[in-house]
Design a protein around this nucleic acid. Sequence first.
DNA 1: TTCGTGGATATACGGTGTATATGCACGGCG
DNA 2: CGCCGTGCATATACACCGTATATCCACGAA
Lengths: 223, 223
Amino acid sequence: MSDGTESARGRLTRERVLQAALELVDAEGLDALSMRRLAADLGVEAMALYHHADSKGGVLDGLVEMIFVEAHRRLDEGRPARTVRAELHRIGRTLLDVASSHPHVLPLVTTRLLAVPLARRPAAVLRLPDRVLGLLTEAGVDRRSAVGAYRAFSGWVLGYAVVDLRAVVDAPDDPEPAIRLGLHRLRTDFPYLRALAPTMATGGGEHEFVRGLDALMDAWQVP
Amino acid sequence: MSDGTESARGRLTRERVLQAALELVDAEGLDALSMRRLAADLGVEAMALYHHADSKGGVLDGLVEMIFVEAHRRLDEGRPARTVRAELHRIGRTLLDVASSHPHVLPLVTTRLLAVPLARRPAAVLRLPDRVLGLLTEAGVDRRSAVGAYRAFSGWVLGYAVVDLRAVVDAPDDPEPAIRLGLHRLRTDFPYLRALAPTMATGGGEHEFVRGLDALMDAWQVP
DNA sequence: TTCGTGGATATACGGTGTATATGCACGGCG
DNA sequence: CGCCGTGCATATACACCGTATATCCACGAA
């Protein structure tokens, strides 16, 4: 059986393992990811994965690493913007873009951020603070402000991504908007929410993201 | 054995189940939560839990519900602030406070926010948007702005909580700051991060939270 | 050609979520 | 008082999970 629908092309690789894991998670969600299932997708036995990742946690770490790698690849391909502010927009929009391509991985970055100490995070993840802090300090922002601005930046990107990607539609196929949102399920004692839910159905998009980002960068006096 | 170190006091209750789950997760993290372990903590067999929660997912939903219940309880106990802006500060600080009391539950709210459609979320969770949207619309903010402001508010609260609670210390017991941060692990090609990591070791605290919140609310012209 | 090495497999163990069937204590009614 | 039905707790069982361990085998170097 040298050819199958899956794999069969040569040896296993950390990259192939993580790529398959990302495809699986994107397609079926985090719960679908098990070592056995992942191995099956690669046409291999479960234990073979342990030569390329030291545990399932390692695979999950690899997933968040991958989305940061992708973000940096996109950023490196494009040319840097001319002003600090424009470059922060470019970085933020890229991160938001990558995040919305892999929404199921987003909770994972929250989890790992809270669990893994800074110095132990993958290199691709650490490139982000280094990139932003470099941008700021080279522009003459002092240490304390730079750190504050970076925290505001990363907090806003993460929070906005989650809020913008949050599930709001209940029955996507129903023609009636109120039913599509599932408003009939809403208890009557949420009058304001009920009234504004249709307005919430459409996300804020990039416009609101940039608006908030600018407000924050102004507050931290980023040039 | 009518008395043990655990439970034995009467029948099971959804409240008792969730309370025990929250204590377990706070003490030992999300990975420690299994139906069997939770049941054991309550002095009961695993399947007994299924009379009070329809699945493990239901228990997890209950956990995020609990932290919202706690936030609303605190808000209802205190008296509302006199201005919209001050009330938003009060709500935001309360949420941040509750989140940092239960850091292990935080990734869960990210997950559920992304997975559960708005109308299916627990009542306690929906009280938050209703509360904030009510506050804004009663103050005369129009629909679109109110929704935008709410999204900015919730995104900032969530993102800031994650960033502020993120793990940064590597070896808490080491006297040497650089080692405590694990800087020796940092690859040398992150010069900016390396230089500013000590500054990052202390969180932004409530001050930076309020600063960002005000900047955002200004941008959405909240009075 | 032989041998060592490193990746893939085979097997096994304890733990997990939960469907199903059984046991049982309690409150309402004769 | 005695009966029974109802609903909660238990017991058992199954498929699946992560992974430790031992085995096997194909390959490149000597």
